[in-house]
């Protein structure tokens, strides 16, 4: 396995990008109730983007939408989306089709039940795969034609350092995130031909409800810092980012450990 290529794109911005005129960029945020998504949505609101906030917790999405409007979003609306329910995809796409300017999407969906629970009930694997990979991928595969048609747009996919190597503590979650990262790599290859761009984001430990109070956390990054680095990466058309940046080097080391040794470790 080779390290993902990550140098910033040097090609000049496509003409199509400026041709979309003055309509605000519309961002679809999947899994918008997560702390990282909240931070990104607010940063986008601050820049005047139009937001479609998708997820399962209707009340929470409505609260976030109101907050984003207060912070300067051109518009912000909650829409119900369940990674395990394909019927919830069509309304999202229909809403995106109505958007006038450039359309973009960011995926924060994913679930990580304790590995012990999965070991006891392997049927849970389906859910993890749906939340972290197949559900979001089905949405993105329908967003892709819109980006191709408009000749511009960004997809931000949040994978995980857990996907870089399978570990005893969370290998099902890691496998799903790894699959999602591979999907994003292919999607980048596809959209690049049409002027779109895909950023793969691999966060390390982020200070969210998922990591709050977990033992063994170190160098925990605030979600606002992660959101800022995501936006910067999207603007600079970076391909794969680790955030905070030093996780690239941590994972380089972890990937470099030979399997005969790695299989004996409990990290």
């Amino acid at each position: 396995m080779s390290a993902p290529e990550s140098t910033p794109e040097s090609a000049p911005e496509r003409a199509a990008e400026s041709a979309t005129g003055s309509a605000p960029e519309t961002w679809l945020v999947l899994g918008a109730s997560s702390a990282m998504a909240r931070a990104l949505a607010r940063a986008l609101a601050n820049e005047g983007a139009a937001l479609i906030l998708a997820g399962r917790d209707d009340d929470d999405l409505a609260a976030l939408a109101a907050d984003c409007r207060f912070r300067g979003a051109a518009s912000a609306e909650p829409l119900r989306w369940d990674a395990r329910d394909p019927a919830t995809i069509a309304p999202l796409i229909a809403r995106l089709e109505r958007a006038e300017g450039k359309v973009s999407a960011a995926v924060f969906a994913g679930s990580m039940p304790p590995q012990a629970e999965i070991d006891a009930d392997p049927a849970l694997i389906d859910g993890v795969a749906a939340d972290s990979f197949t559900g979001p991928a089905q949405v993105l595969s329908r967003v892709a034609p819109l980006i191709e048609a408009r000749g511009a747009g960004t997809i931000v996919g949040v994978a995980s350092v857990a996907g870089d190597r399978g570990r005893v503590g969370n290998y099902v979650y890691g496998a799903a995130k790894s699959a999602f990262a591979t999907y994003l790599s292919g999607l980048r290859n596809r959209l690049n031909r049409a002027g779109g761009h895909v950023v793969t984001v691999k966060p390390g430990f982020v200070d969210t409800a998922m990591t709050w109070g977990l033992p063994g956390m170190f160098l925990v990054a605030p979600p606002e810092a992660v959101a800022a680095s995501i936006l910067k990466a999207a603007r600079r058309r970076r391909n794969v980012i680790y955030t905070p940046f030093f996780w690239r080097y941590i994972m380089m080391i972890i990937r470099a450990v030979p399997e005969p040794i790695f299989k004996k470790l409990s990290i």
């Binding site: 109730s33 909240r38 009340d59 929470d60 609260a63 969210t208 409800a209």
Partner: peptide, 8 residues
């Protein structure tokens, strides 16, 4: 505890 949502 640090809830992030009204629900929690």
């Amino acid at each position: 505890a640090r809830p992030e949502r009204q629900r929690t």
